[in-house]
Design a protein around this nucleic acid. Structure first.
Lengths: 202, 202, 202, 202
DNA sequence: GATGAATGAGAATTCATTCAT
DNA sequence: TATGAATGAATTCTCATTCAT
C-alpha cells in the first residue's frame, strides 16, 4: 500500500469513527450527511469523495465494527484460560468496545431496510460468525461440565441483548468506569451458565 | 365520554396500533406518514385529523405502550405469588407484549431527538415508573432472601436488555411460540437472581 | 373516469405539454424540474405529485407523442386517397405536429441512457409501430407502381430525418407558415419515390 | 510551433476525438468530465490542463468538426466533376464522417444554451459557411440545368436532416458498411434535384 | 370527517472546478 | 505536467404539513 493509499484509508477510518457516534445516537435516517461532515470540519462533498453514498458509509461502518469484534474475539479465544474465563473476557471486551466507540443499537438494527442483498449477505455472515463464537464457547463449557446445559440460541441472545443494551443506560458520569460495568455485567450473565455458585455464601 | 369521543378514541387507538409495527420496523425517520396511513387504508389527511403531527403520534404511541406496560405490571404485582414468580410473570408478559405488538425497543431509543421537554419529562417519568417496578421486585426478593444480593441497576438493565433484544431475533417461523420463548428467557434470567439452583439436578 | 380523475389527467397533460417544449429546447439533462415547474407557475413538489420523477415525466411525454403520432397516422390511413397522397398527408401532419408542439429531437434521442429496459421496450415498440406505417405506405406505393422500387429502410429514415430536422431551422418569423413548409418538404421528399415527374415541365 | 506546442496540440486533439463520441452519445449535460477523462485513462485534472473548462472543450470540438467538414467540402469542390457528382460526393463524405466519428448531430443542437456570444458567432459563421457550400452546389446545378428548380433553403435542410439522422439508425452490425449506406442515401436525395431519372429504366 | 392537491423546507447526491503537491 | 483531494453550488427528490372542498 502506497503512502497515498494509506493516507486515504486513514481518512476513511477517521470518517467512520466520527460517523459511528452520530449515527448511533440519531439513527440512520435521523442523521444528515451535513452533520457527519461538519463534525469533522469537512464538507459533504468530501465525505462523498470517500464513500459512494450514505448507505455505503453505513455499510463500511458495519463491516469495521463486525471485523473488529471478530478480531477481538479471536484474540481472546487464543488465550490459555478456562472456557468460563474466555467467555467472561469476551463479554467484557464487547461491552467496553460498545461504550468506547459510542456505537449503540441503531447501527445493528433492521439492516434489511437499508442494504442491498449482497451487502446484507455479508453483514449477516459476519454477524453469524461473531455470534457463533459465543455459541461455541457455550457449547465447550457445557461439554466440559463447566456450564449447565442450556438452549444455546436463547442464551446467546440473552447475553447479546444484555450487553448491547448497555449503551442505553451507561453514563460517563456514573460512579463506575466502563471496565467495572463490563465486569459486573459479565459476572451476572455467567450466573446463567456456571454450575458452582460462589454467591451462595454471600 | 360521548359516543363521538369514544369513536374518535377508538380510531386513534387503531391508528396507533398499526403505526407501532411500522415505526418499530423502520424507525421514526424511516417511516412516512403516507406509509402509516396507507397501511390503514386511510389518507395522510385523515391521520392528521386524529394527531396533531407525526411527533404527536409517536408520543401517543409511547404513552400507550408505557401505560399498558405499567398496567400489566400492576396487575401482576397484585397476584398472590412469591416474588420470584411475580418477576417471572412480569418478564413473560413484557416479552409477549413486545412480540405481539411487533414493537421493537427502537421506539424507545433516544427520544431526546424528537420530543419536547415536557413530553420527555412524562416519558421518562413513565419509563422510570416501569423500571422501578422491576427494581422493587428485585429488592423484595433480596430482602426475603429469595434472591442473591446484586447491583439493582445493573441487573435491572441486564433483564431489560435481554428482553428487548428478543425482537431482533424472534422469528414467527421458529419452532417455539412466543410464550415458550418468553418463559425460557425469564427462566434463564432468573438464574442471575435465585439462590436455590434447581438445575444442579438436571 | 370521475371528475377528479379527469381533472388530474388534464393537469398531467398540461404539465407534459409545457415540459415538452423546454425539454426539447434544452435537452433532458439541461432542463431542471424547477424550470419545468416554474414555467407552469407550480412548485417542484406539485410536479412530483403528478410524476414519480424526472425520468417518468420524460417517459410519459414520449408515450404521448408516440401515441398521438400513431393516432394521426391511423386517421390518415383511413382516408380514401391514392397512396402517394396518403404519404404526403402523413408527412405534413408529422411536420405540423413537431412544429406546433415545439418538440424537437432531444426528446427522441438516445433513450437508452435514460430509461429502464421495460420503458425502452415500450418506446421502441411504439417507434417501430409508427415507422412501419411509413414502410407500409412505401411498400404499397411500390406494389401499385406508383412509387419506384427503393430500399424501404433507408428511404423511411431519409424521410424521418428530413422531417424531424425541421425543428432545427423552422422559424416562426419566416415568410412561410408551418403548413406551407410541411407541404413543400413533403413534396420534395415524394420526388424520391414517385415515378411520373411533373416537374419536367417546370 | 515548438515541439512542446505540437505535443500539446496532439494531446488536445486526442482528447477531443475521444470526447466527441461520448458527448455525442450522452449529450453535453449528460456527460461528466470524469467520464471523458477516464475513457482516456487520464484524470479530470489533466483534462483541465488542456481545456479551460467543459464548455471550452465542447467549443473546440465544434470548431474541429466544422473545420473538418468545411475542409472536406473544399477538397471536394476542387474536383473536376459535374455538379451532381460533387454534391453526391459531399453527402457521402458528410455521412461517412458522422458515422466514423460517432458524432451525432446532438453536438450541434441548441448551442445557444451553452456558449458565449462570441463563441456562438464563430460557430454560426462556420455552420453557415458549411451550409452555404451545399446551397451553392444546388444553385450551380439549377443554373446549369442539371437540377430542377427548388427552394434552396428547404432542400438544403432536407438533405442535412436526412444525413444527420443516420446516426440514429445506423448500426455497425447491419449488412451494409458506411460507404454503401452513404452512397444510397445520397443517391435517393439526388432524386429531389436531378432531372434525368435513370430509375425509369430500372 | 375525509381527501386530493399543493407546498416548501430540507436531504441526498452530483459534478465542474480548483489547488497543493 | 499530472493527480488526488476538496469544495460548493446546483439539482433531484422526499415528506411532513396545510387547506379548500
Amino acid at each position: 500500500m502506497s503512502l497515498r493509499e494509506r493516507k486515504s484509508a486513514k481518512k476513511k477510518e477517521e470518517i467512520i469513527r466520527s460517523a459511528v457516534s452520530i449515527l448511533s445516537e440519531k439513527g440512520y435516517h435521523g442523521t444528515t450527511m451535513e452533520e457527519i461532515a461538519s463534525k469533522l470540519l469537512m464538507t459533504k462533498g468530501s465525505v462523498y469523495y470517500y464513500f459512494k453514498d450514505k448507505q455505503d458509509l453505513l455499510y463500511q461502518i458495519q463491516l469495521m465494527i463486525l471485523h473488529q469484534s471478530i478480531t477481538n474475539m479471536n484474540d481472546i479465544q487464543k488465550l490459555d484460560l478456562p472456557v468460563s474465563d474466555i467467555l467472561r473476557k469476551a463479554m467484557i471486551v464487547h461491552i467496553e468496545y460498545l461504550i468506547s466507540e459510542k456505537s449503540g443499537f441503531e447501527l445493528m438494527i433492521n439492516p434489511e431496510e437499508i442494504f442491498s442483498t449482497s451487502q446484507l449477505d455479508e453483514i449477516f455472515r459476519l454477524r453469524d460468525e461473531y455470534g457463533m463464537c459465543f455459541d461455541q464457547l457455550i457449547v465447550q463449557g457445557i461439554d466440559k461440565g463447566d456450564f449447565v446445559s442450556v438452549d444455546i440460541k436463547i442464551v446467546r441472545n440473552i447475553i447479546l441483548g444484555a450487553m448491547n443494551w448497555v449503551t442505553q443506560w451507561y453514563s460517563y458520569e456514573g460512579k463506575m468506569n466502563k471496565t467495572e460495568i463490563a465486569t459486573m455485567i459479565s459476572e451476572y450473565l455467567m450466573q446463567i451458565l456456571i454450575t458452582d455458585k460462589r454467591k451462595h455464601t454471600s
